[in-house]
Amino acid sequence: MLSKKIISFAASALIVFSAACPALAASTPRSTKESSPIHVDYAYINRVSSTLSISNGTAHIFGYVQRTTSGKRIDVESTLERYSGGSWDRVASWSASSNSYSASVSKTYRVSGGTYRVATYYSVSGSSGSEADTLYSKTVNC
């Protein structure tokens, strides 16, 4: 009799918790890491941004990396991606490097209808190695 009560309680709890959790599926693709000010403690990277805007069929791509005073060489690559068939496909890519305080990619590109984002890969090297990651812009539909 005690085991029936435990099973009944467990089944009730399962129903309550599964009803309270929203579905995780989204109708539009989402980036895992969307562009916003980065608040990670890096030794060599001070600031990074990755943005995309689309107006009248023209995509405006911008990737920016700023180093700290400990950083030395900056590499940045911004890739325009289009969502198709459940995955992100590369459309075009641009890169820049610098030994200065910052490096950026600023480009325009003609696009047709679809969902787009910019993936900005960045790397800054210093005296004891390098730090690198990828930052994604918000998705834009056109």
Rank of each mutant, 00 (worst) to 15 (best):
L2N: 07
S3Y: 15
S3N: 14
K4A: 15
K5G: 11
F9M: 09
F9K: 13
A10L: 08
A11V: 05
I15N: 07
S18M: 10
A19K: 10
A23K: 11
L24F: 03
A25S: 12
A25N: 11
A25Y: 00
T32W: 04
E34D: 11
E34M: 02
I38R: 02
I38K: 00
V40D: 06
D41Y: 03
D41A: 07
A43G: 10
A43L: 15
R47Y: 04
R47W: 01
V48P: 00
S49W: 02
T51M: 01
S55G: 12
G57P: 05
T58H: 05
A59K: 01
A59F: 07
I61K: 00
F62S: 04
G63Q: 03
Y64W: 07
Y64D: 07
V65D: 02
V65A: 12
Q66I: 04
S78N: 02
L80T: 07
E81H: 03
Y83M: 12
S84F: 06
S87V: 12
W88D: 14
D89Q: 15
R90G: 12
R90E: 13
A92F: 14
S95M: 02
S95I: 03
N99Q: 15
S100A: 08
Y101L: 13
A103D: 06
A103M: 13
S104V: 10
S106I: 04
S106R: 07
K107G: 02
Y109S: 11
R110E: 14
S112R: 08
S112K: 06
G113C: 05
G114S: 09
G114D: 09
Y116H: 08
R117Q: 02
S125H: 11
S127L: 12
S127H: 06
S127M: 10
S127T: 06
G129T: 15
Y136H: 01
Y136K: 00
